[in-house]
């Protein structure tokens, strides 16, 4: 397997996901096959090919620094499961 169970647990932790044992098995297998698939690229000779910064052949897409009205606060907070005092309310963040 190109991805170990430890790798999957680490990624799950960074992603704030709790996995059951079955899920751990499944993701280890699935992620391994995804990585193996992508690893086929490693067999290609890229000597002299510049690293790709963007898949499309575009550059310098800018906008002018001109202000426009923002959204109504109601609209912005519409999907928040919990809100208070014009803010999204989340469980206490310990610093």
């Amino acid at each position: 397997m190109s991805v170990s169970k430890e790798d999957v647990l680490h990624i799950a932790k960074l992603s704030k996901l709790n996995l059951t044992d079955e899920e751990l098995e499944m993701y280890t297998k699935d992620l391994s096959s995804i990585v193996d698939f992508a690893n086929q690229l490693s067999s290609i000779d890229v000597e002299g090919v510049k690293p790709t910064a963007h898949i499309l052949n575009i550059q310098n897409v800018f906008r002018k620094d001109v202000m426009q009205p923002s959204f109504d606060r109601e609209e912005i907070l519409k999907n928040a499961p919990s809100k208070d005092a014009g803010c999204i309310s989340v469980p206490k963040v310990v610093e």
Partner: peptide, 23 residues
């Protein structure tokens, strides 16, 4: 700048919470 990095919302300080926001 007048506007945010990737959208046209204002950057000014001290506005009511969540009033300088867009998707």
């Amino acid at each position: 700048t007048n506007t945010k990095m990737y959208c046209n919302c204002s950057t000014s300080f001290g506005a009511d919470p969540n009033t300088h926001c867009c998707p």
